[in-house]
Write a protein that binds this DNA or RNA. Sequence first.
DNA 1: CGAACTTCTGAGCACCTTCTGAAGCGGCAC
DNA 2: GTGCCGCTTCAGAAGGTGCTCAGAAGTTCG
Lengths: 252, 252
Amino acid sequence: MLVDAMNTTRSGRPALTRPDGTPLRVLVVDDDPDLAEVLTGALRYEGWEVRAAGDGAGALTAARELMPDAVVLDVMLPDTDGFAVLRLLHGVKPDVCVLFLTARDAVEDRIAGITAGGDDYVTKPFSLEEVVARLRGLLRRAGMARQQEEDGPRLVVGDLTMDEEAREVTRAGELIELSPTEFELLRFLMRNPRRVLSKAQILDRVWSYDFGGRAHVVELYISYLRKKVDVGREPMIHTVRGAGYVLKPVTK
Amino acid sequence: MLVDAMNTTRSGRPALTRPDGTPLRVLVVDDDPDLAEVLTGALRYEGWEVRAAGDGAGALTAARELMPDAVVLDVMLPDTDGFAVLRLLHGVKPDVCVLFLTARDAVEDRIAGITAGGDDYVTKPFSLEEVVARLRGLLRRAGMARQQEEDGPRLVVGDLTMDEEAREVTRAGELIELSPTEFELLRFLMRNPRRVLSKAQILDRVWSYDFGGRAHVVELYISYLRKKVDVGREPMIHTVRGAGYVLKPVTK
DNA sequence: CGAACTTCTGAGCACCTTCTGAAGCGGCAC
DNA sequence: GTGCCGCTTCAGAAGGTGCTCAGAAGTTCG
């Protein structure tokens, strides 16, 4: 029963689970407590079991207890560097997936080789949608996740489809080209179909956590999306005045 | 079921397996822990079962436990040299394949003698694509691997084909001449069709692990490839702004 | 030893993306 | 009907990304 409750995200969506149906286990390692808190919250929202640690030593202890399927790991830690932690983690659990967090201007330094093993990284500042999407991708490719949806890495709402790996979006079979932000916004909408999403919610999920701008950008990007997704067709993106936006399959 | 899950690489590609369908077993022997870690990760990503050792003694112990199909062996080890280890390994498992890792200026004549026996070598610094490709070739030639794909050492995407052994590439039947780096880049793309590959991923996989340069070279080599592969034809190499590159068969 | 090739760097350019501000539109309340 | 508020759209600035060219340095091969 407990397991059953944890099989569902707090948002009501079916959760991505381990093959045996229990929740995926994720360890968050970052020395910034605020950031760790935000990440932890977002991953719990996905229906996953999450623990946090603030340094390499704590990460190792936590990993031994939790035996996580994946680790979200800041490259810059107070006591050690990410590469050493990676080695230790692989010692604890050889098949663990790792998503590195790294500063934008530090991209070049020690990322070399990290993506080679199938692991991935995200540069700060990042959006929560991106972190979650990367993590889902990692877990799916590693065979650690059981796909509850039918067709894997493909999102489908009505005649609108999104292949996350190929980064391909089609409506009624027609290919649609999207900029990175447009793509992420649409992904968020498609992962929450028929649910009204407020501008604040969208801003929190799709834009980086340090974005100072206003909700106006959301309106702007919705209009961009409509031009590419809805133009000349029955609209799927709807405005709910005073509440937000919804993506719905066309009903007749 | 477990075996079945392991028959697939983490990237979703069908794995090269042992004749009985279980994962190939590879032992990595190198005294540089970072390098061993990267190699281990890359080989696991191929869907193989991997163990690592840091010296000759460790290698022997690990070999007795794992009974590997292949060994990736650094010629320079702290306690002994690779050739002595090789003799010991042959004592444990006479038919084991060996891929030597050697410094560029090392004694080439001794290596040459070894390769006559069917084994192979790669000079440091190497790219992971090269190590993986050599290993696949070794295992295939030794009859230790069952090819899950139909036609063995030949990659096909749309009307583009690559014979890895002959180093021959054709598009629509026409022969295309490529430089070594161009060839390896295209191989990586062809082994991951319809998947967006980031520049960092490409850099990690196709360029040597000690390459300090920037992602700019990837753009440059993509442009070289386009000139040879896509020129005057329907393009197969596509740029996904802000994400990376994809190789796709032409769709109409 | 020289020629051809391969690899990589740097600079310049064009285009794309993102975001701001301002004007326009439309529904809803009064 | 009128005015207000929320949403939409336009136009443009600023910065970023990717492509290409030219050339330097290193390598291979005859």
